[in-house]
Design a protein around this nucleic acid. Structure first.
Length: 217
DNA sequence: CAAGAGATCATCT
DNA sequence: GATGATCTCTTGA
């Protein structure tokens, strides 16, 4: 079932958790369906880790807009991040999608990306996969689905998400990017942790606003 | 393994 | 002019 705008018009911490287990869908010729396994919440102007803490700017206006709109921006000059605005208009908040697992057999499409799995490093979200261990490398070859998109920049690259999707609604299939509900995840399966890369955020750096499902290898 | 650096640019001061 | 809501590769123990 397609998630409608009302789904996103709720407290961001709740939306971030309920997105786990849902399916991020992208139409690129075929439809690629990916299970969402890691998210982060960015809540309000007081949240020093949030772009919105600097006030309303051209870049951050999406976060201040109505719920259910896509916020895509470039970090470190090369990586796109995928966020979805949450809560009411004028309350700046969003959920960052940090990791997904393609449901399709990725060998069937995206043949350009597949070679990266063979030789390249793994990296990715530190909680999901701990780096370059040979055993994990072998599993990556064996189960590429778990590794192609286990990081916020890796998933946007894999799904070809860039600035063209900025400010587009995700509660319709019109723009080729939408989210479908999945089996509800029991609260006991949801892990919490501090958000990544926000050491500058004062007291907010310690907030446990990152949510993920335990990796299954 | 852990730690560090490089890549590279839109955005904001 | 500085700075990242990152990833990958290299180095060195």
């Amino acid at each position: 079932m397609l998630l409608l705008q009302s789904f996103y018009n709720r407290p961001t911490l709740k939306v971030a958790q309920e997105l786990l287990g849902c399916f991020l869908c992208r139409r690129l010729g075929e439809i690629i369906r990916c299970k969402i396994v890691e998210t982060e919440a960015y809540c309000g102007s007081d949240d020093k880790a949030s772009h919105a803490s600097k006030g309303r700017t051209e870049r951050t206006q999406v976060m201040f807009g109505p719920p259910g709109y896509v916020y895509v921006y470039l970090v470190y000059g090369l990586h796109y991040m995928l966020n979805i605005a949450t809560e009411r208009k004028n309350y700046p908040a969003a959920v960052l999608i940090r990791a997904v697992e393609p449901v399709n057999d990725i060998q069937n499409f995206h043949q350009k990306e597949a070679p990266l799995l063979r030789g390249g490093g793994l990296g990715g979200s530190e909680v999901l996969i701990k780096t370059n261990q040979p055993t994990l490398r072998e599993k990556a070859v064996d189960k590429p689905n778990l590794f192609v998109a286990n990081g916020p920049a890796k998933l946007t690259k894999f799904l070809q998400i860039n600035k063209f999707l900025n400010n587009k609604p995700i509660f319709t299939k019109k723009h080729g990017l939408w989210i479908e509900s999945g089996e509800p995840v029991p609260p006991s399966q949801i892990m919490r942790a501090p958000r990544i890369g926000v050491d500058y955020a004062g007291e907010y750096k310690n907030k446990l606003w990152r949510f993920y499902l335990s990796p299954h290898l």
